[in-house]
Amino acid sequence: MIKEFRKHRMLFLMMVPSVVYFFLLCYLPMAGTVLAFKSYRFDKGIFGSPWAGLDNFEFFFRSGKALLVTSNTVLYNAAFIVSGLVLQLAVAIVIAEMGGKFVRKAVQSTLLFPFFLSWVVVGAIVYNLFNYDYGYLNVLLKAMGLPPQDFYSSPGWWKYILLFFNNWKYVGYNSLVYLAAIIGIDRSLYEAAAIDGANVFQRIRRITLPLIVPTTVIMVLLSVGNIFRGNFDLFYQLVGTNGLLYDATDVIDTFVFRSLLGSQDIGMSAATGLYQSVVCFVIILVTNAVVRKVQPDYSLF
């Protein structure tokens, strides 16, 4: 152990910042989870406040919406993961195969741009596209002599709208990871394939895809670990306080936000946070176990 430490002392030194970071920001705050079982008082603090048993969990299940919002959260995230994976891989491969440097940079920058927009701005864009009175789409429909669509009262549309904007925002950024993996592949493999007469699709199918599977598996595992956490900004900024759409668009995070905005009860929000964490933890254990069974080299731990 000590020998090991001596041998790699520079490496260990480089690790220190992230160890400190995770200790301070991830491990120490875990003590705060105790709030989920407390009736919080400002003067007594987290540890001095009286115990509340399971009272803080009650509202989440009493509303009768626990099942709906949980399944919405999981389904939306699953759709985001699957569609994101396909699109990001496709974008990364296409960019890697592209010839001209200028075109490649232009495409990459264009795709990356939405990532830097805040969800608030995206929310405004969506509103200006879809609103009934002067939304861009409805103006277009009216100009073509078609009846305007009331998107904000039709829950059916929102699955696709949300899916589209989530991918639109993240595809450029997340494809960078795959692009890096593809660029890391030994060029001589491609040259050999070219000499053997393989066309571009065959090269992608036989070389690129198999060699980036480990990266892909890790990326998927990481996102599956968060499948019970809704992207609050996405859902809140795009849907807002529009009750008509809730059944189709409500995720755990927006539901909790709305329920507790009036009462500001720290204990109750801690309780739902804990619920999400525990379920996420179980999910990631299970997925990892499955991956390990299939291909031990690709699992996270």
Partner: peptide, 22 residues
Amino acid sequence: DLEKIKTQQAALSDVASQYQSP
């Protein structure tokens, strides 16, 4: 004193938003 009814209050605040305001 809302301490005893905070569970109901939270659930109702969601109901108001989803069913009452439309």
